[in-house]
Nucleic acid binder design. Structure first.
Length: 881
RNA sequence: GGGCGCUUAGCUCAGCGGGAGAGCGCUUCCCUUACAAGGAAGAUGUCACAGGUUCAAAUCCUGUAGCGCCCACCA
């Protein structure tokens, strides 16, 4: 029977509506216009091991709002979703998983372990994307990328070979950050420093004469076996005389040269420092400068190796430290120890202490690539929003060091280098090409085997914006959608990722990877603390969605973005936005019951003052909305949407038309259509922010049952601009109503009681307005009558001022005037203040000479108004005394 | 050590050269046929401090203090 959809009388419930629309919202519709104009985004690919957290939700909501806005604007738009293989993180996770299943991963071959990881990935690797999809993202879900996909791997090989052939990638045996737990090298960025309480030890190192000694301080006594020298500062008077002599190392036969080097800081420790080049980056540099030898005393697992005395071999660093300390004491070489706080390098994934170790690793020389990136930003080819992040970016790029790109793990892109048995090497995209290139280069067939190391995960991530578009192939997507329009990310991966993408892209494609880098803030808990597993303060976005709905979460996130401060989130943070959804729901119910019976027509008349007002307000909203979103100012657009709907549409427009519908049934058709149209257009603007409720209501209002409509267009503005003058009258009207209500309240007149109200000192135009719309005043302020009086007439009145008139109520012995007197006195003070301010300004020669004319005119206007109001309030007060 | 950001209502934060704003909270009244997840009327601020620029400073500059973050170093 019921041919129409009807909005349920139940309160808004996200659970009833959100599941219905997910498919339609996330259905990817390829736009295909010939226009060169496009909008494309590379999603920051979440790790396959990941679970949705609020950072993802914030990050993707921002992107989705911009994507949906561009889709509505009919711009060709591409947003490719995907995941990152996350080398170390994934291998670690799967190995732990296998260990739990009692599988000893150390006995597995490379192939066996790889197949286990793939199995895990195929089963669990899309969890994060499924969770992301629930947010209602308009990605191209039918084309999901993964960094280990065949085509993306081909991009990686291509990139590697090109960089290698340019001489930017090289292999070097040097000191690297070695994770003794994972047994792989890691990059500088993956090392974090943790402050720990430890001790600084002072030892004597005797000179050859056996009498004199130098006191050396160290936090790492166990490294004595790797010492090759003792450095003293050239200005060190005490130790200067020993320079060039030799001291003996207490535990091995090596003689240590006393060298002079600025590096020895006289303020630190004893002022003399032992040089252990095999296990310290600074010492390594000193040793190189002085041509000293390097000694490695550690195995890959962090235990002491065969270059230390027998009874120390195989000991852990901690045990060796204790043992050395004891021996030092026994030998009377120990001087003292001191409690200090010391920053210890730790691997960000494993949590293990990082040992600098001498290793053969692959490096990418990024110095020149970094310079190109800096230039691109300085030229404005890439713009950071907010701009202050550019400084941070420059600072890091300027002091960038070669990037260690090889990892001794198996999950990742195996480095496309082939070795012959006699260690000649060739870089090639695959074995066939390797054979060919090898023969050309070396004139022989090599028995080639591939490098076993894999690439740092961030190497492939660095190619993401163009590898996902098909590079190095000149695909349609690559030629149309690259460079991408915007990159949205948190500041925590500017260096890990943004910088690497910039360098790779400029080097390999000759173009920047994106035009804008939008850096957003972090989400913290209500106390402003970072959310973390260890603190147990993590809020799961899925729980928030469950309780408040995706729409509320999205609107919350969109509203809270700010360049300067992080978002603090507590249990109640989403409530205002859930309430907003509820408000939209209920208002739509009103609109539907009051408009659906009306036949649609093309020539709707917008001639009632409130229709003109609300359509003009909508035009204003639309203008701001567009300009904010063009500038990625998502939070400002959200603010405008919220206040337009709640303050203008609900609190005034609907309240007025309600009265109109009762009073002038016959003459209300156009207003009903205007009202419905405003709501429809509003839902289009809401759609990028809160798509589910938008679609639900849009369909309830416009579609037939069994039909599902997608919101697919930006609304057009109304042509009411020539009627803008009515805006001022509307404001006077609002002020007048508020003023009556306020007076009633101050006189404690019960809200249900109808009274007679008087007005005077009114502009003739507004008088006509009142006469035409008397009933609106009566209803909105609950009056029996609203009558003009001549002020000169000696009525016994108590009054309040509105912006363009005075409104009054007859005195009554029941009234307590005090609150009204208090209010008027307060008004008087503020008007006095305004008056003096304006007066002073206008007496100021400098102001009159320098200020722009419109400011001066405005000030004159203010002076006039404040004077009138001040005098009037005085007058009103005298009536009361 | 180098750099960045912040300090505005009780709380969380907008505003960033021309009369101090929002949400939450608070006070009073109201279940008025869209909505109590609501409506109406309100109260609340030396815009961290000190100088300076300007006719005009919450807003620009300099300095100080407190908070937070990043990078480097860490004998």
């Amino acid at each position: 029977m019921n041919e129409k959809n009807t909005i349920s009388n139940k309160p808004y419930s996200h659970k009833d509506i959100e599941p219905k629309w997910l498919d339609l919202i996330t259905e990817y519709k390829k736009t295909n216009s010939d226009s060169k104009n496009y909008f494309s985004v590379a999603i920051p690919p979440p790790n396959v091991t990941g679970n949705l957290h609020l950072g993802h939700a914030l990050n993707t909501t921002i992107q989705d709002i911009l994507v949906k806005y561009n889709l509505l604007s009919k711009i060709d738009t591409l947003w490719t979703p995907g995941t990152d293989h996350a080398g170390i993180a994934t291998q670690l996770l799967v190995e732990r998983f296998l260990n739990l299943k009692k599988i000893d991963t150390t006995t597995l071959s490379r192939e066996q372990l790889l197949s286990h990881i793939w199995e895990w990935k195929n089963k669990n690797g899309n969890t994060i994307l499924e969770q992301l999809k629930r947010l209602g993202l308009s990605c191209s879900w039918n084309d999901i990328k993964f960094t280990l996909d065949e085509d993306l791997s081909a991009s990686v090989n291509e990139a590697f070979v090109r960089l290698f052939d340019k001489g930017l990638i090289y292999r070097e045996k040097t000191l690297v950050n070695w994770d003794t737990n994972l047994q792989t090298a890691i990059s500088d960025l993956e090392v974090v420093f943790e402050n720990r309480k430890t001790k600084l030890y002072y030892f004597k190192y005797f000179l050859e004469d056996g009498k004199n000694f130098i006191v050396v301080s160290t936090t790492r006594p166990e490294t004595v076996f790797g010492d090759v020298a003792v450095a003293v500062n050239p200005k060190d008077k005490k130790n200067k005389k020993h320079i060039g002599k030799k001291v003996s190392s207490p535990f091995n036969k090596i003689e240590l040269l006393v060298i002079e080097d600025e590096y020895a800081d006289m303020e630190k420790g004893s002022g003399a420092v032992k040089i252990t080049p095999g296990h310290d980056f600074n010492d390594y540099k000193v040793a190189k400068d002085h041509g000293l030898q390097l000694i490695n005393i550690l195995n890959d697992d962090g235990t002491l190796n065969n270059s230390v005395p027998l009874n120390f071999r195989g000991l852990s660093v901690e045990d060796a430290r204790k043992k050395v300390l004891n021996l030092m004491k026994e030998l009377d070489l120990y001087v003292e120890e001191e409690d200090i706080e010391h920053a210890v390098p730790v691997g960000d994934r494993s949590g293990a202490i990082i040992e600098p170790l001498l290793k053969n690793q692959w490096f990418l020389d990024v110095k020149e690539m970094a310079s190109k990136s800096i230039r691109a930003v300085k030229k404005g080819d890439v713009v950071f929003k907010p701009k202050f992040w550019e400084n941070t970016f420059f600072e890091w790029m300027e002091r960038i060091q070669p990037w260690c790109i090889s990892r001794q793990i198996i999950w990742g892109h195996r480095i496309p280098i082939w070795f012959s048995e006699d260690n000649k090497l060739i870089a090639a995209k695959n074995i066939e090409e390797a054979r060919k290139k090898f023969k050309i280069k070396y004139g022989e067939e090599g028995n080639l085997h591939q490098e076993t190391d894999v690439l740092d995960t961030w190497f492939s991530s660095g190619l993401w914006p163009f590898s996902t578009l098909g590079w190095p192939k000149e695909t349609k997507e690559f030629s149309k959608y690259f460079p991408t329009s915007i990159l949205v990310t948190g500041f925590d991966i500017i260096f890990f990722w943004v910088a690497r993408m910039m360098m790779m892209s400029l080097e390999l494609t000759g173009k920047p990877p994106f035009k804008i880098v939008y850096i957003h803030n972090l989400i913290r808990d209500e106390k402003g603390q970072k959310m973390s597993k260890t603190k147990g303060n993590i809020v799961d976005p899925l729980d928030l969605i469950d309780e408040f709905g995706t729409d509320s979460l999205r609107f919350f996130l969109a509203s809270k973005i700010s360049p300067h401060s992080d978002i603090k989130l507590s249990k109640n943070s989403l409530e205002p936005y859930r309430n907003f959804m509820n408000k939209i729901w209920n208002a739509s119910k009103f609109v539907q019951t009051n408009s659906t019976k009306i036949k649609k027509k093309s020539d709707v008349k917008i001639d009632k003052f409130y229709d003109i007002w609300i359509t003009s307000k909508f035009n204003e909203l639309l203008l701001k909305y567009k300009s904010f979103l063009e500038n990625c100012e998502v939070e400002k657009a959200a603010y405008e949407i919220y206040h337009f709907f709640w303050d203008d549409f609900c609190d005034w427009y609907i309240e007025i038309v309600k009265i109109h519908f009762v009073d002038q049934q016959a003459d209300s058709e156009d207003t009903r259509l205007v009202m419905a149209d405003i709501l429809n257009k509003f839902l289009s603007l809401l759609y990028p922010f809160s798509p589910f409720i938008s679609l639900e209501l849009y369909n309830q209002l416009n579609s037939k049952p069994q039909q599902k409509l997608l919101i697919a267009e930006m609304p057009t503005p109304y042509s009411v601009d020539e009627k803008q003058r009515l805006m001022r009258e509307f404001e006077i009207f609002q002020d007048c109503v508020v003023s009556i209500r306020s007076l009633r309240k101050n006189l404690s007149i019960p809200s249900g009681k109808k009274i007679v109200c008087y007005y005077h000192q009114v502009d003739s135009r507004f008088k006509v307005f009142i006469e035409e719309n008397r009933n609106l005043f009566l209803r909105l302020a609950n009056l029996d009558d609203f009558i003009e009086v001549d002020h000169a007439k000696d009525l016994n009145l108590i009054s309040n001022i509105a912006s363009d008139l005075i409104i009054s109520i007859e005195k009554n012995s029941q009234f307590d005037y005090k609150p009204q007197i208090v209010k008027l006195k307060k008004d008087l003070v503020s008007q006095e203040k305004l008056h003096t301010q304006s007066n002073n300004k206008l007496k100021n020669k400098g102001f009159l000479e320098s200020a722009p004319k419109e400011i001066i005119d405005k000030e004159k206007e203010k002076l006039k108004k404040s004077k009138e109001d001040r005098d009037e309030i005085k007058n009103l007060l005298s009536q009361l005394s």
